[in-house]
């Protein structure tokens, strides 16, 4: 830069119109301002569009990418079945197990309640039996629950409710009182429903079924536990009708001891 150049610059610096400078700055500011305003005006308009687009995008992933992913997964599973089974098994297994456990627990609670509520010689016997057989007591009870077991059998005179003969395993409550109450319940039900010739045939009580076989002067009440379905009922009815037809004679109704012995000889199997 020579002396004349320097002079030129100096001249320009000193002599340029200040207003012109200010003007250029103002122009630049205006542009800036406009840009900012425009952006603010645009934003609300643009944003939803962006959002929509984004949503669409997300929604489309399964459609667009899904098949690809599934195919990939399928292939992966096919190639490593063992690994997948391994991975799923505990989850499903746990689900099934939890369900079964729940059901078992309900059953167990039922049985435990039974054990506790009937702390009888029979209960103690079962406990001993379970121990010697190496199975749990509850398991044994399950077996006992499965089949229909004959607990007590009474031949009861109609009306009076007096026992004419009995066959019984457990001697818990007084039989005469049971027979009386049974007769009362029976006549109550028969009265209450005005059933005419109809007679009460079954009472369900807790885990027990009392099957009632009616004859003209007496009825036979059989106390059973376990599953008592139509098939078992048919079997029991045959047994009772056979017994009544072939074994009971007139003198039996006046000789309780002999009658009871007959019952004992006839009903040897305690499971029906």
């Amino acid at each position: 830069m020579n002396a004349s150049d320097k002079l030129e610059i100096l001249k320009e610096l000193l002599l340029t119109d200040e207003r012109k400078y200010a003007e250029s700055i103002t122009k630049k500011l205006e542009v800036l301002e406009e840009t900012v305003n425009k952006r603010n005006k645009l934003l609300p308009k643009v944003e939803p569009i962006i959002d929509d687009k984004l949503e669409e995008f997300v929604e489309d992933i399964p459609k667009t990418l899904g098949p690809t992913i599934t195919a990939a997964l399928k292939e992966e599973i096919a190639n490593s079945q063992d690994a997948v089974v391994e991975a799923l098994f505990p989850i499903m297994g746990r689900m099934i197990k939890r369900y079964v456990q729940h059901e078992m627990q309900l059953l167990q609670e039922n049985i435990t309640e039974q054990i506790n509520s009937r702390f009888t010689i029979k209960g103690i016997k079962r406990r001993l039996k379970a121990k010697s057989a190496g199975v749990s007591e509850a398991e044994l009870m399950l077996i006992e629950q499965g089949a229909s077991k004959l607990h007590q059998l009474f031949v009861i005179e109609k009306g009076s409710g007096i026992i004419k003969a009995s066959l019984t395993k457990d001697n818990t409550i007084d039989h005469d009182m049971i027979a009386g109450m049974l007769t009362a319940i029976k006549s109550f039900v028969e009265d209450a429903f005005q059933s005419g010739e109809q007679e009460l045939q079954q009472i369900q009580y807790d885990l027990y079924t009392i099957h009632i076989q009616n004859f003209s002067q007496y009825y036979i009440a059989v106390v059973l536990s376990g599953i008592f379905d139509t098939k078992t009922q048919g079997k029991l009815e045959d047994l009772l009708l056979n017994f009544a037809q072939h074994k009971i004679n007139k003198t039996d109704l006046t000789n309780q001891q002999e009658f009871s012995n007959k019952l004992k000889a006839y009903f040897t199997n305690e499971y029906i």
Binding site: S160, G161, D191
Partner: peptide, 26 residues
């Protein structure tokens, strides 16, 4: 003698007693 005693509910009128409760009584 085993007395099987039926303790029946009270009634204003004896006619209202269930006949079945009286059946076979000694």
């Amino acid at each position: 003698l085993s007395m099987i005693i039926w303790d029946i509910e009270g009634n204003e009128k004896v006619q209202k007693t269930r006949n079945s409760y009286l059946m076979g009584t000694a």
